[in-house]
């Protein structure tokens, strides 16, 4: 069962994503800020990280760069209310970019797709 780390400073969104991803059969863990998120990446070795971009303190893009510096193989999905971040090439290193929506199915499907791609690449 794949472990998904959700990093978002909005508690209600963390709860929503956890609920929906668990329902889809994933194991989840959450962090309320980027620093905690990086810690969990080290200690709990998630299979995929969902990163909010706008967070107090370190933002999601910097967190992604730090994650990728350590391990390029961990897939990262950027999840944000700001669709304009797509124009920032720094976000292009992410495996996927999903704009926040109350219909979480797009996020869930993206998680599945990215994990599948990773599995195919490894085989």
């Amino acid at each position: 069962m794949s472990k998904i780390l959700i990093v978002d400073d909005e508690p209600h969104l963390r709860l929503l994503y956890e609920t929906e991803l668990r329902r889809a059969g994933f194991e989840t863990m959450t962090a309320s800020n980027a620093v905690q998120g990086l810690e969990f990446v080290e200690t709990m070795k998630p299979d995929l990280v969902i990163l909010d971009i706008r967070m107090a303190g370190m933002d999601g893009i910097e967190a992604m760069q730090r994650i990728l510096e350590r391990d390029k193989r961990i897939p990262v999905i950027l999840n944000t209310a700001f669709s304009s971040y797509r124009d920032n090439y720094l976000t292009w290193a992410a495996d996927a970019y999903v704009t926040k929506s109350s219909d979480v199915s797009e996020l869930v499907e993206t998680v599945k797709g990215v994990l599948e791609n990773k599995a195919t690449a490894q085989n």
């Binding site: 909005e10 209600h12 969104l13 929503l16 609920t19 929906e20 209310a81 926040k100 929506s101 109350s102 219909d103 979480v104």
Partner: peptide, 15 residues
């Protein structure tokens, strides 16, 4: 700014 609360409201309403 409205998007975040809307996502939570709408997401749980779907649930």
């Amino acid at each position: 700014e409205l998007r975040n609360p809307l996502v939570a409201i709408g997401g749980f309403a779907r649930a």
